[in-house]
Design a protein around this nucleic acid. Structure first.
Lengths: 345, 345
DNA sequence: TTGTAAGCGTTATCAA
DNA sequence: TTGATAACGCTTACAA
């Protein structure tokens, strides 16, 4: 690899002048700039970011801490964030914690000091630990739960999204709408469940419908397909009549689909089903699944804007800022019907 | 952040002695080592990897270049590689090309020189470009196509996997087995299709069955669900009788499932279906899908072993090495039947 | 066993 | 507008 020194020699200028050109500093005459650029091109010079980072103390690498990568929501979030980071001239270093609360803090302790910033989807972090993290490195959380810590946070429109989803079902004439994935603990880490349940209640209230406890299905916190299927089976066994299912996650909804079919009910003719997250599986399931798209691209954009702000601007406010991304209702066959997923005519 | 200097001052020793302790060099007396370690602990000192890398010229960061991340195979591959890299003390920097051939080379040109090594899933790279890449940075390809270049490569057992899959179907009594996803071009980038087709033919030959051209379905190179569904519909329209489908990718198979059902055929009673890749969707589809698991964990392990070898050992052979990972047949409902995907009794 | 001095490739300071 | 020189935090000779 050629260095600035080589370029300087070749262009017949000083090291510092090359540095000026590379960094687009203003005070360089046009002829000089051209000479230097020519030398850079001839030598195929690329600035050594390691040396630059050492010197500036600034690091253009931001960490992205996720509980998993092999899960559609996280991998597309990661993709969106990498795309966005590139626009900011930042490189993303992804770290996976497997949802281990201890690993989350350990990882930040280990890598945090040598990162320019941190984007984190925290899972097991306490308020105190969140404060610790923010002290180590400029941080933005992407999380549904609130923290008692001065940390910026980007969240989904959990409540509004489900509320709109319920409204959609009501508009189609469904009235006995079940909620799948509820939680009645006070655990802050179940905030997504709490907010979505609140949205469900809002939606019913909007429509003047009662909120019937027997239609609210608590489930295991691990929102997988089996959990969704089990929830619906319980509902059916109890003999509770229902004509729609608002699942708090696509995976729950995708488990609900076969469970509904098992009972001999057609989707959406007899029972409408919808989820949350707008994962690929929702788009391609059979029937395709109506879902709330949480605005991943916007989440990425806002998260990087907030982080960049904290990384560059010392006047960033002390208190944590909260940005809630817009949602979008993706209407598909599981509520509005239509042709089969792969149906020709 | 405290530096070695601070630690040295605190421990009352020289900079170099601290360096010795940090790097576990032998010639340090036990008392000194303890003093230094105490100081390190008190100050919470972490060696600055940027400075270290600059000085040593060695970089403990390896690039991972993938066409996508938001696709199950790639995100689980990435996860496996990160896990494995950690065992080698390496950090993984993921880069996504969106399958753009130009972006692949540009990315390597841009970041390659400042990476310790490179793991790449090439898509549009020519032989010449592959040689260029390998000249820039120690590289291991994870790819089904062979390159006329001295680059190590880790591949799936494409041919053997499909061969075994056909054998499995034959053992269940299926005899008119269709191949879905074939390609009859000579394009090297379609190697996966070519190898899997060869495996299909092997399997038929093993069983003494003829290879009927009308059962070999060429498809679009983009192995998605719609493509799979379209292929099967064509087969059905032509009135070709078949009792099994070996799809060259899970996505094709997942498209085949509804297409088969559309025709009023039951899976697997009347038509068995299987795929390749063992994605999550295969595991959770309805019915769950028999598939060839390509040994992702092993691919990650071998890829890092080869790369580490090239990064550290100058005696690594000049010629490119090839490692083919073991496959595993994941037998599920779409061939062996059984309870419904989520079925209780 | 321990310490001193030099240098990795860049940017920042200050003077020309 | 340009350039000489120091410095970022660490490791690697080479001495002591």
């Amino acid at each position: 690899m050629s260095t600035m020194h080589d370029v300087a020699l070749r262009a017949g200028v000083s090291l510092k002048t090359v540095s000026r050109v590379v960094n687009n500093e203003p005070s360089v005459s046009e002829p000089t700039r051209q000479k230097v650029n020519a030398a850079i091109a001839e030598l195929g010079f690329r600035p050594n970011s390691v040396a630059r980072n050492l010197r500036t103390g600034r690091i253009d690498v931001v960490g992205l801490v996720l509980p998993q990568l092999s899960q559609p929501y996280f991998s597309s979030l990661a993709e969106a964030i990498m795309r966005e980071a590139e626009r900011h001239g930042l490189t993303v270093l992804i770290e996976v914690t497997d949802g281990d609360a201890e690993a989350e803090l350990a990882l930040v302790r280990e890598h945090g000091p040598h990162l320019g910033g941190l984007l984190m989807y925290p899972v097991g972090l306490s308020d105190a630990e969140a404060r610790t993290v923010a002290r180590i490195v400029p941080t933005v959380f992407m999380s549904e739960r609130a923290y008692d810590a001065p940390v910026d946070r980007v969240a989904m429109a959990n409540r509004e999204g489900v509320r709109a989803l319920v409204g959609h079902m009501v508009s189609l004439g469904y009235t006995r709408i079940a909620a799948l994935g509820a939680d009645h603990s006070d655990l802050p880490e179940r905030s997504a469940a709490h907010l979505r349940l609140a949205g469900y209640q809002d939606g019913l209230r909007d429509a003047g419908l009662p909120c019937l406890p027997e239609l609210v299905i608590d489930t295991d916190p691990h929102w997988g397909r089996q959990v969704g299927a089990a929830g619906i089976r319980r509902l059916i066994e109890r003999g509770v009549p229902f004509d729609a299912v608002v699942a708090f996650a696509d995976a729950l909804a995708l488990g609900a689909l076969p469970a509904v079919r098992e009972a001999g009910l057609r989707v959406p003719a007899e029972v409408a089903v919808a989820g949350f997250d707008d994962t690929d599986e929702a788009r391609y399931s059979y029937p395709s699944l109506t879902s709330v798209a949480p605005g991943t691209a916007q989440i990425a954009r806002e998260a990087l804007a907030l982080l960049n702000d904290r990384m560059t601007d010392d006047t960033a406010p002390d208190a944590g800022r909260l940005v809630v991304a817009d949602f979008e209702l993706m209407l598909r066959e599981s509520t509005v019907g239509g042709m089969a997923a792969w149906g020709g005519a």
